[in-house]
Design a protein around this nucleic acid. Sequence first.
RNA 1: GGCAAGGUAGCUCAGUUGGUCAGAGCACACGGUUCAUACCCGUGAUGUCGAGGGUUCGACUCCCUCCCUUGCUACCA
Length: 670
Amino acid sequence: MTAQKPFYITTPIYYANAELHIGHAFTTLAADTATRYQRAMGREAWFLTGSDEHGQKVEQAARAKGITPLQHTDALVEKFKALWQRLDICYDDFIRTTEERHKKAVRHVLGQLYAKGDIYSDTYTGWYCTPCERFWTEKEVPEKLCPDCHRPVEELQEKNYFFRMSKYQQPLIDYIKAHPGFIRPENRRNEVLGFLAQPLQDLCISRPKKRLAWGIEIPFDPEYVTYVWFDALTNYISAIGYPDDMARFHRYWPASCHLVGKDILTTHAVYWSTMLFALGLPLPEMLFAHGWWVLSGGKMSKSVGNVVNPLDLVEKYGLDPFRFFLFREMVFGADAVFSEESFILRYNADLANDFGNLCQRTLPMLLKRRQGKFRRGPATLPQTAEIAALARAVKADYIAAMEGFLFHEALKRTWDLISRLNKFIDETAPWKLAKEEKWADLDEVFWTVGEGIRFCAHLVQPFMPHTAPKFLEQIGLPATFLPLPQLEWGQLPDGTVCREPSPIFPRLDTPRIESLKKGEKAEKSPKGEKTAPASTGVSPAAGQATGGAPAAPPAAGGATGEGLIDYDEFMKTHLAVAVVETAEKVAGADKLLRLTVRLGEETRQLVAGIALHYTPEQLIGKQVVIVKNLKPARIRGVESHGMILAAGTPDGGLAVVTTDRPATPGIRVK
RNA sequence: GGCAAGGUAGCUCAGUUGGUCAGAGCACACGGUUCAUACCCGUGAUGUCGAGGGUUCGACUCCCUCCCUUGCUACCA
C-alpha cells in the first residue's frame, strides 16, 4: 500500500493593512471545503493560510497610528484569525511573514538565487514622486506630473536587485502547455499563455531601506529589503519547513493546490512559477483562480439601502446555509452575483424544501407508524434498486466534481438524489401504505429514504460541517461520518430508531424577499418602529406580519426620552408561567394552534399563531410565558384567554419564550 | 488598441464531432396529493437559440460581416 502524498492546499496570505471582506473569506472557505472533502476521503490534508505583513502600506498605516508596524499587524492578524474562527476555518497553519521561520526561508532563497546569478543588481532611471514615495514609468507621466497627486515628478536613478524572470519564460510556456490541468479554469490558463506571448521583463525585487525599511533584509546587501514577491510568495514553502526541515518539506511539496482569486493569478502563474524554476523546485500541481462575488446593487450602494455585507448573512441565517449558498450558487471559477434575495431563494428551494423537508415529511410518519424504527427487509419495490444505483452514480460524480474543484456540480448532483427521494415518497405514498397496513412496503420506503438521508449527509458534509451531522442524528445514527470511499448504499442498520425531528433548515419568510425587492428598510430598524421581539399574540397576523423584522435589532442606545414606561405601567401587564397541556391545530387556519395551558390550579384555553413554527407535540409539556390579563378574544371561532410570548429567530422562525429552569406554573413573571 | 471568451425561455445557465437539441433549475400557471417546513409530485406556456448573409438536403451547432457583453493586457524603481 503506497502512502498517498498529503493534500497540501493554500490560500494567499492576506495583506495586513486592512480588514478582510467576502473576497478573502470566499477563498478561504473554498480551501476549507476542499480540505474537509479530502479528509472525508480519508486523505491527510494540510491547509495553510496566513498574513503578508511587510511593505509600504503597512509601514504607513502604522506610522499614521503612531505604533510600530508589528503592533499594527499583530492587531490585524487577531482580526484575521477571529474571522476564520467565526467561519469555522479548519486551517492547520497560519504563517506570518514577520515570523523568523519565514524570514529565514526568504533570505535563503534570495541567497541561493543570487549565488546562482538569477538575481542581479542594476541601476535604472525613473520618475519619482517624493510625496507619494513611488516611481512612475516614462509612459505613466507624459506631463511629468504624478498620476496620483498631480505634483511634478523628478528623474531619479536608483540601484535595485532584479530577478532574472525572463530566463524562465520559455520553460514556463512549455510547462503550461504540457500540463493542461496546471492552471484552472481553462480560460484562465489561456489568459496566462496569452500573457506569456509577450516578452517577459525581469522583476525588480528590492527596495532601498532608505525608502522602505519595513521588510526582510536582503542577505547580500544590508542596504536593501526584498519587495513583495519574494517576501510573500515564499510563504508557501517556508511554512512547510523549507529549508531547515527538508524532510517535512518534501512530504508536502509540491502543493496540491494554490487557491487564488483571479486578480492574483498572474503573480502566481508567472512570478511564483519562475521562482520555483529558479530554485529547482517542482511547480504546484494546480493553480486555481476563482471568480468574484459581485454585490448586487453595489454600484449604487449609497442610494440603495439593500446592499448587504455578505458576511452579515452568517449571523443572520447561519454559517452552513451561507457556505452552501456560496458553493452552490457560484460556478466555481466564474463570477457570481451576491444578493440576499438569491440567498433566500436558494435556501428555501434547496435546503428548506428539498433536503430539510425530506426529513420533516418522513420521520414524524415513521415515529407514528413504525415507532421510529427503520426496518430493512427484502427489497421488492421497483424503485429501490433504481435509487440505489442512482446513489452510487451520484457519489461517483460527486467525487469527480470535487476532485476538480467543481463544487457547484458536486452539490447539484447530490440534489439529484434528494429530488429522487422526494419523488419516491410521492410515488409510494407511505401514508396510504400505512392505512392499508402494507407494513413491508412501508418499511422499505422508510428505510430507503433514511438511507438516502444518511448518504446525502455524507456528501454534504464538507460544505456544511455543522448541519450534516444533524441529519445523521435525526435518523438515529451517531454523528460520525464514514470515510467517503467506504460510503456505500445500504449501510443504514436495520432497527435504527430515528429521533423526533425538528426542522434543520427552517423555511425563511418570503415576505422578506418582497421587502428586499422593494428596497424597503428591512435591514434598518428605526427606533419607534415595532422591531423588538414581536410577541406572537392571539392575533394570527401578529408575528407573521413582522416576520421580516431584522434578526438582531441594534440595541438602541441609552434608554432615554419618550416611549419609556414606569414600573407601575409595566405591572399592568400580568405575565405568568404556564405549562402547555394540550395543543392542536385550529381547523381551517394554517398558523393557529389551540392550546390549553395550566397556571397552578387554573387551566385556560388560548390561541397562538405559531403553527408554522411548532408542532403540537413540540409544545406539549413546555413551560411558556403568557400574558394573563389580556382581554379575551375570539379567533376563528375559538376563545383565547391570553397570549403566548415568542420572539423571532435569525432565520425568520419563531422561538417561544420559556424559563431557564422549571418555574412554578401560574407564578407571575416580573 | 491587442488577445480571449461569450451573447439560448422572466432569471441563472446545459446543449458532445451539424439531422427529436430547442433543454434543466428557479420563478409563473394549472392539476394532483396531504406525510411534511404554504411542502412535495405532475402538467403547461413563453424562446425568430444577438443581427444579417453564406455553405448544406438540413445549422443553435460550420464560414463571413456587424452589434453587444465580459475577461486578460504583468512588471517597468
